[in-house]
Design a protein around this nucleic acid. Sequence first.
DNA 1: TCTTCATATGAAGAAATCTTCAGATGTGAG
DNA 2: CTCACATCTGAAGATTTCTTCATATGAAGA
Lengths: 105, 105
Amino acid sequence: MKRGLSDICYGFFSTLANPTRLAILETLRPHPMNVTNIAEALNQEQSMVSHNLRTLEKCNLVSGERRGKEKIYSINPETVEGIFKVVENHAAKHCPSQGACSESK
Amino acid sequence: MKRGLSDICYGFFSTLANPTRLAILETLRPHPMNVTNIAEALNQEQSMVSHNLRTLEKCNLVSGERRGKEKIYSINPETVEGIFKVVENHAAKHCPSQGACSESK
DNA sequence: TCTTCATATGAAGAAATCTTCAGATGTGAG
DNA sequence: CTCACATCTGAAGATTTCTTCATATGAAGA
């Protein structure tokens, strides 16, 4: 198996290949938020959100800052916006109605 | 669960979250190639490459063109280069030695 | 048509990832 | 210190995705 850029990318894309994590990024896009609020916004269990925030943080897609009892998470805007931009453009051109790269064809 | 850009992105990133598929993209980056040659380049079974090419094609990350017995696959350069560029930049800033977004921390 | 090369496909066990639950840790107030 | 609130963590069953194998389909030439 060839090895190169692929390796650098694998963890990155694996991190993004999850609906909860994508939803977290989208939720944090407008502004930073604490864990409880993210969980409420997504209607998910707090522990699930926490697990996924850890994955996102490992990958530097979000970063968290303690503020008293809370921990405020915010996205890494450069990377997240950059990626979303490419995907939005791709979807606009190649993904008819909606729901890209899925079933059908 | 919130629904939005996340849905469009999910299939896209799932497609990219696989070492074989990333290696295929990297292999095709310089120039188009047929299935057998890709398999040889990656030292992988032909059927595996074929399965993964199908996934990539569904997502419009590659496209295949029959030429006689062979089928020549090529990447969608706009999207693939765009994505790699963002990831390379991200890795340069946030992924110390190499192997991004993986273990440690 | 028969043969050969090239590619695609279905199915099933193997492997990786998720989700959930129970409880641990951290923080600040009283 | 104890309590309450906020977040984190480990483990295990549930679920999803991979890999492999056997075989099917397609294309071209004899």
